[in-house]
Design a binder for these strands. Structure first.
Lengths: 183, 183
DNA sequence: TAGGCATATGCAACTGGTTGCACAGCATCG
DNA sequence: CGATGCTGTGCAACCAGTTGCATATGCCTA
């Protein structure tokens, strides 16, 4: 399992409350590992039990108190140990691929529409990644060592979205060519 | 959820027992949607309750009896209805990406090894897909309509593996360049 | 001042999927 | 004759993650 480790990475970068983490998981880290706030609070509790993190209640002005979590030495050890173990290649799991196989038994027009929606979604995400790359890593050939990971992840996202677009276009070409150059 | 629909697709192509389905999910369909035999039996039971499939006990010679499942009209209706609904783009979830972000806090050498293993795995899978493509779709420009889905899925797999390899190589270039052209 | 919104934390019930185990028929090999 | 291995079906316990709800502070606006 890996949410623990994703949280450890995030806390190693910067201490945070559960709420803060939930927002990070809506953005940067969340692009490749989603987590709801409920899940995060639950796991944080378990991690504190394992002494991977410790928490401290912090009073704030104008808003509710928050519990700030800090990674412990044990947490850093765990994180280092985890990186030194190999990660199995996660098999791809695509509902969309199942749908393509269902072509002869379903509604081809609806599937084509779906592919178009999908292509747009990939395009939007790609643009977002490219903007992020330009903003946060303007000089990718001169990266600091603590920037390298983030950059490489972003590159992976960009490659994946480009591939997604290419696949959609190949599908559209196949599925609309027979109707004679549809809109 | 989609295992139901993956099973419906598989049964629409050809009736089968739970055991047969489990083997299909180790191969063709399984390349993009994994399922264990326990899971399949469980879901088949539920699907029979929903009348999406019906079963018939078939005696065999030299081996145990088997329960052959056949898709029903209701099952075909459900499948068609499912294809006409849009599928949300599934967010990518990559433990490997988390690990890349963990670079400053972990064992860079181990991560590099992991990337190499990963590249090999992608290469192996790519070769497998390309062989499948050459064997089952020798003339991709003249596909029958019931072959199109399988072909497009295979193309998606090929594109995904190529991207995986490209990403690994970019990572290796970054992570080993600083050591001065490592082995 | 009531309602909506952002901040902030959390529980309970459920679902999809994994892991581990059980059991049974029949074949083949040592 | 026993061990191993493939075929074949299934249950029980567990785990990760989702959905829905509860609760509380304090801001801003209608």
């Amino acid at each position: 399992m890996s949410l623990e480790h994703a949280i450890l990475v995030s806390l190693a970068e910067k201490s945070a409350s559960g709420y803060d983490l939930a927002r990070r998981f809506d953005a940067s880290i969340g692009h490749f590992w989603k987590a709801s706030h409920q899940q995060i609070y639950k796991v944080l509790g378990r991690m504190e039990g394992d002494s991977w993190v410790s928490s401290q209640l912090v009073a704030q002005e104008g808003r509710p108190d928050k519990k700030v979590y800090v990674i412990t030495c044990a947490g850093r050890d765990e994180l280092a140990a985890w990186t030194s173990k190999s990660t199995p290649v996660e098999p791809l799991r695509s509902e969309f691929a199942v749908k393509l196989r269902a072509l002869p038994f379903g509604d081809a027009d609806a599937i084509v529409d779906d592919v178009r929606v999908r292509r747009r979604a990939h395009q939007t995400q790609l643009t977002y990644y490219e903007d992020s790359a330009a903003r946060f890593y303007p000089r990718p050939d001169e990266l600091a060592s603590d920037e390298l990971g983030g950059w490489l992840v972003l590159r992976g996202g960009i490659l994946a979205e480009q591939t997604g677009i290419a696949w959609c276009e190949e599908i559209l070409q196949r599925l609309t060519a027979s109707d004679g150059a549809e809109r």
